[in-house]
Design a protein around this nucleic acid. Sequence first.
RNA 1: GCCCCCGUAGCUCAGGCGGACAGAGCAGCGGUUUCCUAAACCGCGUGCCGGGUGUUCGAGUCACCCCGGGGGCACCA
Length: 551
Amino acid sequence: MGANVTEQLSEGLHAALRAAGLAPPEELLWEVPRESVHGDYATNVAMQLAKAARRPPRQVAELIVKHWPSLPAVERVEVAGPGFVNVFLAGAWCADALRQILAAGAEYGQSPRGRGQRVRIEFVSANPTGPLVIVNARAAAIGDALARILRSQGYTVFAEYYVNDAGNQATMLARSMEARVRQLLGEARDVPEGGYPGEYLVDVAKGYLAEEGAHSLSEPEAARLERLGRYAVRRIREAQERVLREYGVEFDRWVSENVEIRKPGLPEEAIELLRARDLVYEAEGALWFRASRFGDDEDRVLVKSDGELTYFAADIAYHLFKFGDADRLIDLIGPDHHGYVARIKAAMIALGKPADAVQVLIVQLVTLLRGGEPVRMSKRRGEFVLMEELIEEVGRDAARFTFLTRRHDSPLDFDIEVVTRQSADNPVYYVQYCHARISSIFQHLKQRKLPVPDWRSVDLSRLTLPEELALIKRLLQFPDLVAGAARTLEPHRVAYYLQELAAGFHPYYNRHRVVSEDRALTDARLALAAAVGQVVRNGLALLGVSAPEKM
RNA sequence: GCCCCCGUAGCUCAGGCGGACAGAGCAGCGGUUUCCUAAACCGCGUGCCGGGUGUUCGAGUCACCCCGGGGGCACCA
């Protein structure tokens, strides 16, 4: 008993197919035609079934239309073009469906279809060697929105941040720390080649001296570096966590590669699992995994000839770790790691996971511009535009929304000056303003001491303007839209939908008064405004963007 | 040389598991406010959808090739 239109249409279509003696395809797809003269929904089943039915598509479509059952939601059904079945919704039914949207409230758009499935989504996972930068903000916006969207579809979602605090880079961080600490003590020391020369480490080094004291530097090298490294990782991680929280992103857990994967010997265990399946071999002094049997280009090294584990070996262990309480994994990674996708998938398939249980999304780079000029960023010299500077300058909502109006796999030019200078015309404000306007209508009502009607008893048949029906039909598409965003892992669909919805409301608001002398009409229009406001709020919530009452 | 991503309006990008006449925002020009927020509304668009071949009743969408841009091709992480 939902307002989900396509579910009802599919039931009707099934009934029609049965009555017509046609075998239904496994899945029925409804699309919203670009042109309204083609109806509110259309399906191409007739064309799909034509071959099996040994009839021309249009004839099949005629059969479907002929046997179409009477449904309150549907005014008429017709055959069009090469064999489309076009469905026109009944206006009165649509208007009445507003009641269901309002009753569902914040739950409108949710679905139970993912219930029982546990999804672990890992994102950002920047190295704990420096502050977060702009591309991390992009990944954070996308990952967080995906988590929210999947949750809305009933999935149990865990958001996870992996801290690569082991291996070479951890050592280089420790050495860089040591140089900075000794510099503070007056020694002439350079940050080592391949280290982290960013200024931020100076502050961390100051903290270290204050908390741990200079005497700790007299420890033997191994212990000294471990202490320095551990301290730096902790402080940098805390800073990353703080920025992400400001951005509105919370992780369910932060997993330390060093503590939770390496120390307990999980990589070795993973290798043994592969060995038990006879999927490893020794060659040239190293231990290899037969990745090429599972879709990778070539076999991959697990243990180097010097006896050290590769990052890949740890990564296999980490993915198994994630599968510990999840059925499905989603990794968001940067394009520089895409060479890893094939091998990690190969390893998971080799260990018995379904081929589609690991989904890897590549979040493409962000080219930062300022007034059309590229902002120079040099990791080597430690020059970045930081994520916190971005939030400061552009604002959290605008930054998130801008990232979410692009596909994750499309490289993005982000011109700070444009996004800030045009802030008033930014699409995010267009959508938020829609929400604020609707809030102000109810504020106005309150000031005039007029009651908010009980939606259950409002006469919605007063909503007959074409703009009103178009708006309502747009609202009715929302559940399918969110489901589609969840299925394809494309949060930007929600952002575009919201812009279209707002683009439907603003002109309507401009042309027609909601609150008028006609009390019954006022109540009906209030219901529509409330429903639009609710859906805007729900949609923005899925993106992690605020829905202000005032602007 | 091999692999991945991208190539749609001046700019930034959408185009919903192939569908019916290709869209939005921005930038530009002109107009709208005694009225629930003008961060709004109204009007103004001639795009070889990078090029080619193919699959299909139908291709911006799928396959292959080519061109252009970015990124990867480690016993680094």
